[in-house]
Design a protein around this nucleic acid. Structure first.
Lengths: 219, 219, 219, 219
DNA sequence: AATGAATGAGCCTTCATTCAT
DNA sequence: GATGAATGAAGGCTCATTCAT
């Protein structure tokens, strides 16, 4: 394969950019990890920044291939869809497989957006966000305002993302034995789905709920 | 007077580390921003890393001074406490004030923990986490398992944190006019508190709720 | 066909070496200009330096083909020969034709001689220099010392060369409109020939002239 | 002296830029020659190009200090002035002293002008050029056209410059023993002054001279 | 005959750091 | 206490060149 070196560099760059960030990562380190010549990056990608952008693109592609949301069997209950959605998200973010660098890379991208952010969101994030919105649509009272659905979606996403972002802090807060007992990916999936379904149930039962409480700053 | 230079450096470093991260930030830039000599950093702090740690410490101190945990008036309802807790968290993370760099710095610290992480968690994060736990305690059925309360706490924290972390992505996903209409700090506060209270209400009403659904991976 | 690539490279190299010099010119740039593969230079010429030497050779060849020393019609007056000589020299150096890179290249070679200098001088410069000497011979008193004729020859050559070397400085010293008015190639030819003939006339009239003035450093 | 290193770099850079040109000269080599650290150039000058510009400025300054044209005693004959002018020019260009790099540098600048060229001409070259013009003014018929005086000036300058530019070629054309016999700086001075004075004499005697010969290209 | 891929040396620059004053 | 000068290490990048095909 003529692109053997190229892909080796790309893979090595993915992991290293994810670990160190764009600035701290060095081309030398990447080439060493890829067992490639120092000048290879320039030959194949032009410069470090282009390599970074290609890495983001690859992360995007791999993620979509890797854990695609399975096509729901017809008449799948929305609760089941939500469960699968959350599970997929947690798997993508916390699953310990070869490609876990893709998540770390995207988390960095969130914190310090580059030119790659916008296409990344449009092509990869938005479809999934829209799917979550449509799942919620099946469970919420008809004609729930869009922004309300969006915030609910973010609440679900935020619960998952938290374990990716604050993983280290969680590890410090919760002693290791307790963590093993109640914080496996399955445990988190169970909790997040339950918590969110409970909220949705209650909100559906008492649509006024969302109004009964008025924040300090308003009214 | 000598203190003056030192604190000017510290303040400048805070903002710059928060914006660029430890690696990308340069001592030159910090000194220029602080209108101090290039050698000042080494003179006052020894090296760049020590300056960084001091900056984290300062962020910590400022944060605690800035919004000290208010001693609740007696008989404050837990719902009210939760509301204040969420509001405070959002304000700290999204509010535009002089010290907003402290949040940005801590977010970075989460993603790429350094030596400073552990004391930061112990002295600053854990007390707040414990307070949230105790608030939840007042609302949950007696003897709810600790790990369950912890995950609920993380669900609430995660919802808030999401807007700090994924702020840029949210900005791309939601057009600006819609964002202005329904995503102000007040809006987010209202939503997160309502969503969480709804979940807690339903979970309290039907403690079995948390069991009625079994994730795929188990059972 | 194979010859095609080789000569395309050679032509491109000529112009680029002339413009940028040996060091500043890059093989990449030459190959791009010649629409040839990056490795072509090494394939056809071995290395960059050999290509340079070949370019010098080509310049040499082209120059001799281009304005071969015309066999004077019998009984041509030496003044006329001088005129043609000067005109040819100016045309070669300042004329805007496809091959003007040859002059620029040779000027560079003068300033920073390489291995190519000696053969260049022997095969191309010396014949012309000798011809100028023989022209002067016809006009000077018999038995004028060789070194004297040589210095006169250099005086004539130097006057022409000046406009090639210091062209940019002349352009700064003399405003453009004045330059257009009195510094065309024809103007320069007229002046240089007149100036030199005047000197030769006076020196012929008063051979002692060259002795009547004694420089400070001597005597 | 705090600027000791700075001046050492500047001096070393002068010689090396003069020898190799801007591209071929390396910062490493300059620093090695100046016994300075590799980073010194950046500290004192910012970058290589700025160092180059400073070097040109220095060359300019040194040249003016080094061999100033002596203030003529009153009633100095213009022929004497011309002699001193030519001698000074030759000395500056060929004299083998510590500062001969300044000439080589300026020759390079002529051939491949940079941003530094224009100020160099205006501040250093033009005053000398004007002085030569005024010397010629004293010797030429009144109301000789400006462009004619300018071309005569260039004829004199060109004769001198030739030995600086084509020195290597002269060395190949003229065997060493002959060169020693008739091409010392004093010899050249004698020749150039005699040749030019002869031309001026004849042109003054027969002002029409400049018209009696019509170049081929015209009329 | 010709080329795309790869290489190693070297470039300029920038960095955090130190040191003499 | 504070700083201008200087330093060594390392960075990204470009270069001419080579090699397998």
């Amino acid at each position: 394969m003529s692109d053997d070196t190229r892909s080796r560099i790309l893979a090595a760059a993915g992991a290293i950019f994810a670990d160190c960030g764009f600035e701290a990562a060095t081309v030398r380190e990447i080439c060493r990890a890829a067992k490639a010549n120092l000048a290879s990056v320039n030959y194949h990608f032009g410069d470090k920044e282009t390599l970074y952008l290609e890495t983001i693109k690859l992360a995007h592609t791999l993620k979509t291939q890797q854990t695609p949301l399975p096509p729901w069997p017809p008449n799948t209950a929305p609760e089941e869809k939500l469960r699968v959605f959350v599970r997929t998200m947690l798997q993508r973010m916390l699953g310990q497989h070869d490609l876990c660098w893709t998540s770390r890379l995207m988390t960095r991208e969130m914190l310090q957006p580059t030119l790659a952010s916008k296409p990344l969101v449009e092509e990869f994030i938005r479809p999934q966000f829209d799917m979550l919105l449509s799942i919620l649509d099946e469970m919420l009272p008809p004609a729930t305002a869009l922004h309300r659905r969006q915030k609910i979606a973010f609440s679900i996403i935020g619960q998952c993302l938290h374990y990716r972002i604050s993983g280290e802090f969680v590890a410090i807060l919760i002693p290791e034995d307790e963590r093993r007992a109640g914080f496996s990916i399955d445990d988190l999936e169970e909790h997040i789905v339950n918590f969110s379904l409970a909220a949705l149930t209650e909100l559906a039962r008492d649509p006024a709920h969302s109004w009964k409480y008025t924040p300090h700053g308003k009214a």
